[in-house]
Design a protein around this nucleic acid. Structure first.
Lengths: 195, 195, 195, 195
DNA sequence: GATGAATGAGTCTTCATTCAT
DNA sequence: TATGAATGAAGACTCATTCAT
């Protein structure tokens, strides 16, 4: 059986991830593989085996949060109310980035930059779900004309950036989200219903 | 006489700034002092004399754009129409950041981080002018309740971030600005007049 | 029964050798065991089991070419014409090295450096055959006085080196061989008959 | 005055070169810049400043020997006797390589591989002088037909290689040189006069 | 003031070898 | 026997900063 061996490897991988997560939590996004190895108590080679590049580690760190985001996007795409769906989608993307800074970096980067396969897949899935949400809102005439899927993506990343430099507490984040939502809503619709 | 020396010093300073500007224009914001010194044809020591830290150089590079921004903020603060004033202010801050990436970095950073005196002054002046604009818009009931001066600052930096990762052309920047403006406008006001 | 296991082992060994040969053919003589293992689809440990050192693998790669060389040396030692025999011997050693770079490395190295038993044996066999050829040429007065077996060995390795850095095509190799042959021929013999 | 400063720099450069030379004399041609820095008692950066690559250091180490070789090649090109000139030239190149292993590596490498300017110049000068020697020998009908300048260069490098793996003492080197000379001499000329 | 050589800590990356399973 | 994860020493290279001249 190779189960035990793999278990060992998995444990090391987890230790590396945990160490990296701790550093990220402390605000250090540099993800230096040597440093992480030392703190995790494993050899550098082990880190490199599991994560050949900083990018690979970054995406691994973001993976869970990204998966959770996909679930929420799925739910958003099924919302009966198109506008509520858009709200849920944007809130999820925003909060996801603030909860997990690595997700913010992943989403703020061009998809084809060194991305690993799982991330590429997830981005495609997110885009597909968002397209649905977007289309429904558009059909309902609720979306500001001219805005594309990419625009929404960039604008929500920008909002996350704003929240980050503001070191915004939760209620402030909601305020920024309200600004974003009001901004992307079709101008002639009157004010959106309260979130 | 030290006049000649000062002239020499000023010339060196200008060469360093010009070199750094060229690098920034090429998209390199790292501002490595050694590199700049070599390209500028001066010694590293000279660069360090004029700009003891990367931050000092960054702020020097942003200085002109910041001054221009202050002029526009001044004008905005005198606009008869409070909402038009706010529009002008936010557009100026946004376009200023996109035109001059160093200004974006200066404005996106907490004011008390290594800032040099002139920058601290300029930030205070900008804040004062923006406070005026803000207050007038607020008094006119046109600003979304709860938004502070800092919020506006952060949100416009976020919008600049969005435009940057989108690599947005001018018309797209205007769209993002429209989103921002619609977002910060008081919800019950109906849609804003076209910019 | 261990028969099946041995067959497996032999198959693994062959895969490793084939992979290594492919790398050598691509001009990579570094023989990195990790790399080879990965490409061969076996574990590193397996490579180490079969070839404990780089040297062991090198000699295994050279084995076939070395065996072929021995056949030709055998033939050369039986040539009726002593000079023709020497020609055949030196050409065989030269071409063997150029055809199989690993053989060049084996032959250019001092015999007692980590050599495995089969290689030591082959070197002894080659030396014995070459001694015969040498002796006959010497007795016929055709060999430059003072040249030992070792000298011939080194000189032909030097000629192979020359051909290698020249990236010499076949006809050039023949020219270099002619230079070597003319050089090792007894000076007072007049020009050698055309090869 | 910058003389003293430069003197310091030159002294460091010399210490690096001396250290590297010592390592080469011990048979270590790897020229690892870190190692050399440590042994020379200077910072790594200092070594990198003076010699950005291993190749640059290699060529600097070979410089004196190369210059001496050029002197000898000059003399050889002025020899009244074409064959004596060729003898002198080849002996100089051979002995130069054996005295200074770095020169052997420089000469055995394709001229356009990372070569620094001085080395490129020296190679061109050597080629020019050798071309003269070659042409005179050719005109005198003393050179084996078909041999080019490059062939001679490669063959003498090959002879140096042979002498190196033989760990040949001086008299043996002379023997190998005699083999080379006899080999490159036109076959129909009869035996060359004793060196 | 200006120069630029020197420093050396810091970071990245590779790879031969071991060993638990 | 085979596996391949783990190790960590080793080496390459960078760059912010200092300081003697």
């Amino acid at each position: 059986m190779t189960t035990t061996l793999r278990a060992d490897a998995a444990r090391n991988r987890d230790r590396v991830l945990a160490t990296a997560r701790a550093l990220v939590a402390e605000g250090d996004l540099s993800l230096q593989l040597n440093d992480i190895a030392r703190r995790a108590g494993v050899g550098v080679g082990t880190v490199y085996r599991h994560f050949p590049t900083r990018r690979a580690l970054l995406e691994a760190l973001a993976a869970d949060a990204f998966a959770a985001l996909l679930d929420q996007a799925q739910a958003a795409s099924h919302d009966d109310d198109p506008w509520a769906g858009l709200q849920r989608l944007l809130r999820s993307i925003l909060l996801g980035q603030l909860t997990e800074p690595t997700l913010a970096e992943v989403l703020s980067t061009s998809p084809d930059e060194d991305a690993t396969a799982p991330t590429t897949t997830r981005r495609a899935e997110l885009a597909a779900l968002a397209a649905t949400v977007l289309e429904r809102a558009t059909r309902a005439g609720q979306l500001r004309p001219g805005l594309t899927l990419d625009d929404l993506q960039h604008l929500v990343c920008g909002t996350a950036f704003a929240a980050r430099i503001a070191d915004a507490p939760d209620d402030r984040v909601e305020l920024y989200l309200a600004v974003l939502l009001a901004g992307v809503r079709a101008p002639d619709q009157g004010s959106p219903p309260p979130a």
